[in-house]
Computed example of a mutant assay.
Amino acid sequence: MAIVLPPESGDLDVKAIATAFVEARKSNTALTEFPGGFIPDTLDLGYAIQAEEIKQWDDEVVAWKVGGVPPELREKYQETRLAGPVMKKTLFKVEDGGHVKLPVFGGGCSAIEVEFVMELGDLSDLPAEGVTVEQAIGAIDRVYMGYENASSPLTIGNDFGPLGPISDFGLNNGVIVGPELVDWTPEKILSQGVTTTINGSEVHKGNPKPGLDGPFGAVKFLIEFLKKNNYDTSAGVLVSTGVVTGVHIASAGDKAEISYDGQCSFSVELVDVSDL
């Protein structure tokens, strides 16, 4: 089904929209429409809202999620990927066999998304644009098994193409950094099997897709994004590089088992933020 976007506008109150998203997250209040009824008419305007949210949020950015722009909207926006900030208080760590309770917005939207998380080195010597995939791979210091806690108070956040995620913290409420994948190579990452089981039923088994240069293309995108927007590029930036076993709509009470075949496993339980 084609994505039907809400009306667009280039004349939006960036601060008011950001405040609406921030307050909705703080109060766990569902938003059934984009604040004000109009979505930004450009990705840059969406990122301006995101930057204002970061200013208003009482926490620091310690990681980023990278997601995809729906294929049918890539020509319109002239972009294949999008980014959103991950805050320190919602960065979780888990060991092999561990379990994490993840806060989700009960009245909003949530999904179970298994991803690789990559830690980057110092990016200062890389160009602001035109980063190659080889340079992106060379910038990766460590690779972890991980998970994006995809959740937002915006009930139909995924119906707005890339502007929903961009304008609301990337539609995320945190990232899990799992065990490290030691002695990694690009080939090992692309061939790593991953299995996701939700509420006792296996929903997907697969490995990272190489399209658009896979997770390394996500790293390339983020490096250029950080430089364009004057965000921190010192060593230690974490990036959740995109879904491996698909996007699975979920809600508070759902449980998932994630297995990086032959490497590690961990489990998660989605819990309404009001209950934590």
Rank of each mutant, 00 (worst) to 15 (best):
T29P: 09
P208I: 03
F105K: 00
I3V: 13
K76T: 11
D58K: 15
Q50E: 15
V271D: 08
V247Q: 10
T185S: 15
V239F: 00
T132R: 14
G36Q: 13
G200T: 09
I39P: 01
A111T: 03
N199V: 07
G174A: 12
V62Q: 11
E53T: 09
C264K: 01
K76H: 12
V182L: 14
P103V: 08
W64C: 11
T241D: 04
V114D: 07
K89F: 08
K88W: 08
G242K: 01
G164F: 04
V219S: 00
W57C: 08
G68V: 14
D275A: 14
G98T: 07
D272A: 15
L82G: 07
F116H: 10
L43T: 09
A139D: 05
P40C: 09
E115P: 04
A30M: 11
G206M: 00
V219N: 01
F21M: 03
F34C: 06
R25C: 01
G138P: 06
N158A: 12
G206C: 02
H248N: 07
L45V: 12
A51H: 13
L154G: 06
V239H: 00
V114C: 03
C264D: 10
V273P: 05
N207V: 04
F266Q: 02
F221C: 06
E113A: 01
T245V: 07
A256K: 02
E129C: 13
E115S: 03
K93L: 04
Y231H: 14
L126K: 07
A252E: 12
V243R: 03
F92S: 04
P186H: 04
S259M: 08
Y77T: 11
L212K: 08
V4W: 07
A136P: 09
P162Y: 01
E72F: 05
D11T: 10
